[in-house]
């Protein structure tokens, strides 16, 4: 008889815990935002980027990015017909634009071409960074954005190493991993990202792949589009138009 009472108490305790889980309910993001109706991506036309740094400044202001760290940045490439490694520089993330290279430091020759490549988190569908997180602090949301739960992050830096695109950093004071959120606080309210808002030439375009009326579908039909490091099969969702093969 003693045993069965113990059993009863155990069972009711466990059942009570289970029931509380059921009652917990779901939090709402925004009343008109349906999380399963979107699959966010970004389109970047390299031929339109003028390296002004507007996106970098806008991102820093919007997301309170600490100085010296970047959630988006611009790289200036100089490539000599793929004969040698391209010359890449990004002074202060391209935040203040680009001065001409100092004399004698650049590549010279007839085949040399120069261009700007804006970079940010690729919000990979099969992201290496979320797979290595030991505590479930980083994850891909149902609408395709890779986010970090700063309350859960231990700052162990696994994800910083795992990202093949170098998009993550450790916040110097909070000691947690941070990265581009694709302005999740804006896109869930119908706004575009800060970088797209500030881009003067429309080089960057936020895209919703689940929206059949999104201009990205028309663009992809008519243009050649590439992602960075496709050989890594990360399912990157930042699509680059007119991307040169030397870009890594």
């Amino acid at each position: 008889m003693n045993m069965s009472r113990r059993f009863f108490i155990t069972l009711t305790g466990a059942a009570g815990i289970a029931w509380e889980h059921v009652l917990a309910g779901t939090p709402e993001i925004s009343p008109n935002y349906k999380i399963t109706d979107h699959w966010w991506a970004m389109l970047i036309d390299v031929d339109k980027c003028i390296g002004c740094g507007n996106c970098v400044r806008a991102c820093a202001a919007e997301n309170n990015v600490p100085e010296g760290f970047f959630r988006t940045w611009i790289e200036r490439y100089q490539d000599d017909e793929h004969i040698q490694d391209p010359l890449v520089d990004s002074p202060n993330g391209g935040m203040n634009g680009f001065l001409p290279r100092a004399a004698g430091t650049g590549l010279t020759g007839n085949g040399v071409k120069e261009f700007f490549v804006p970079k940010l988190c690729n919000h990979c569908a099969d992201s290496p960074c979320t797979q290595v997180c030991p505590v479930g602090a980083t994850f891909t949301t149902p609408d395709g954005v890779v986010l970090i739960d700063e309350k859960y992050c231990l700052g162990c830096r696994y994800c910083v190493q795992a990202c093949p695109y170098g998009c993550r950093y450790i916040h110097p004071e909070k000691n947690v991993a941070q990265k581009c959120t694709l302005c999740y606080h804006r896109i869930t309210k119908g706004l575009t990202t800060a970088c797209c808002e500030a881009c003067p030439t429309g080089s960057r375009q936020l895209a919703d792949l689940k929206n059949p009326n999104d201009p990205i579908h028309e663009f992809m039909k008519k243009h050649s589009v590439q992602v960075l490091k496709p050989q890594m099969a990360t399912g990157a969702k930042v699509y680059y138009a007119n991307l040169d093969g030397s870009v890594r």
Partner: peptide, 24 residues
């Protein structure tokens, strides 16, 4: 409570990140 709501993470963090202030 919200852990595991969408996957192996805290579901509430989505709403927390979505509630960050808009600057632009």
């Amino acid at each position: 409570k919200s852990f595991g709501e969408f996957g192996h993470y805290r579901g509430d963090s989505l709403a927390e990140i979505a509630a960050l202030p808009i600057i632009h």
